[in-house]
Write a protein that binds this DNA or RNA. Sequence first.
DNA 1: ACAGGGACGTTAAGT
DNA 2: ACGTCCCTGT
Length: 747
Amino acid sequence: MSSLLSALNPEQLEAVTLPHQSALVLAGAGSGKTRVLTTRIAHLIQSGQVSPHGILAVTFTNKAAKEMLTRVSSMLPINTRGMWVGTFHGLCNRMLRAHHQDAGLQQAFQILDSADQVAVIKRILKNLSADDAKFPPRQVQWFINSAKEEGLRAYQVEAYDDFTRNMAEFYLFYEQQCNKEGVVDFAELLLRSYELLTRNEHLREHYRGRFNHILVDEFQDTNRLQYRWLKLLAGDHAAVFAVGDDDQSIYAFRGANTGNMKDFERDFDISKIIKLEQNYRSHGNILDAANTLIRNNSGRLGKNLWTSEGHGEPIRVVNAPTDFDEAAFIVDEVKSLHAEGVALSQIALLYRSNAQSRVLEHALFNASLAYRVYGGMRFFERQEIKHALAYLRLIANPHDDNALLRIINFPVRGIGMRSVELLQDDAKRHGGSLWTSMLQKCSTRTTFIPDSGDGIPARFEGSGAAGKPTRKGVEGFAELIESMRRICKTLPLPGIVEHMLEHSGLAAHYHAEREGAERLENLNELITAATSFVHEIEDDSLVAFLTHASLEAGEHQAGSGQDALQLMTVHSAKGLEFHSVFLSGLEDGLFPHDNSRNEAGGMEEERRLMYVALTRARRRLYLSFAQSRMLHGQTRYNIPSRFLREIPDNLLKWLQPVQKAATRNQEWGVRKQGPSREPGYGMQPRASNIQDSAASPWRVGQNVVHAKFGAGVIVNCEGHGADARVEVKFRAGVKWLSLEYAKLTSA
DNA sequence: ACAGGGACGTTAAGT
DNA sequence: ACGTCCCTGT
């Protein structure tokens, strides 16, 4: 047991070994948060305070949930099956599947992702002939989801104006449509589960009795409904162990409510917040910068990161004339870092908004540097995969109108818009699903019209009636789905997928398409996904697989496995760390973003975002800005970010202003000591005097040999220990080299 | 059925 | 600048 606890610092130890009581752990960036969470779970079990059965641990991402399970299992040789570890949505789904009847759901209910949800809303708006200029589908979606996150059903929405009344009406129709089809959206998983526990005392008491310990990761990201769900589930007896960092709350825009932390203190009688402030990630200068910056925010719970390691290198600041030059600088610097031995995958290029990646990618591409951009299309979101899933959904539940509409004429089988509209009208009249209408039409026809044997009813030949010839297509489609449903009852999951791909015509379609090779490959990958799903998961049903596809959209972009630079927004960098970080586009308007100016608390959220960005770097941090930048087809002239001014000068080292690319002919170097002011920039850059070469065997003037650059002479030294660096003049130019990585020999 | 043109929007993103 | 979405014309 003590082996579990031996490596913890006092605060971590206190958190891990806390008795059965609710607690709030304020866990700074890089302070060992996950370690504390997982060690506590292991400790609780090992010391016999709770069985795995009594533990519920909730996170926001599947990745975090998986990580937690892996780490717990590595600490304890126990079966983690009894534990409820997962995302809010995953756990709610688990609960709703187990009690689908009590929750008013069919067993095979399917989950809509955001795109599916918009599709449903569009259909409803069209159906109601709503003015789509006045009511954009995405706004309706936002309204519905916000209402659900406040725990409100359509009839509970308070509407004092026409606009809201309309919105509430759309919500109502949407609700009815989802119920009819047997589908739920993400917010619905939470709300249903919450309502189930509220209404069903028996179930509530069951789960309250079961979960003695509830652990919450990234607590600052919880929304109101999630908080209420936790509170409801905890009741009076469970100990809720909430871990979070108010300074890293960057998701207010999607409903995260930092107020939950203060509510939690009050509602759960938290007498003392445990603060994890020792940072195991970054060097001192980086932490000082982050600490100083974030102190400008008000209403913090308060926290100051520290490290037992040294100050490390100064933070480098770069002023570039254009975004193009900024990118060129970054590429050069990345190259030399790489040459010094830093793996590309340990270098991150961060930016505030996705549009900024373009110019960086362009420069990287020209320099033939391997890179990987986060945030692209995910596996289960690809068009061909969505089509395939739509077929699978119909197999599981043919009343899923959304799925039906997606593939009723894909691949094309001669079902035009006209036929689809007729079906929709019919379904609307009868209040049933499209599938029901379809079957009725087909059966009506076969009853009244004898089939001539070739599949084409004699009576229709040459009839020329506008809508009628398409019926054959509809009928063929109905038969296709029915036969797939029949046959798939007898097949194992991968077999179902394979059969569907073959008989739907999807495989043939992409096979014939000129650019379809990759799509076809993805479809085959879907069979693989089904196969591994069957091997890994205890439930190998089609419904379980579809649920998996909805709740886990898959990898962001298949990491080719090769060593590559990491490009991503600051938001997606949260939780990650890198040896070196380049934070680009530090300009007012970009970061902080213009749109945040008018939002309540917007600037403070931007500052927290900046705080997240800074604390990603372990050893080296570059901050850069451009005086002009091409954005949305226009050149913008920005001033450096106010956040740059909030970092103490003595932590910064201003690199020589980058020259215009066209006239650039010298290497990047350190600005000479002395007063300097960027004209028109209102900042006082100061050359760093962090320098310590006393203990170093290297001195200025020494001749050295580098494995790659050849012979050179040291012209400058800085840093100490693992962070000592020297500036060497080679034939090819002047380079800064990290002594930790560069293979330098004395000559 | 499908290509092509025009309007539009363009902060961040998990489930 | 660029991608997407929807409509229109062939």
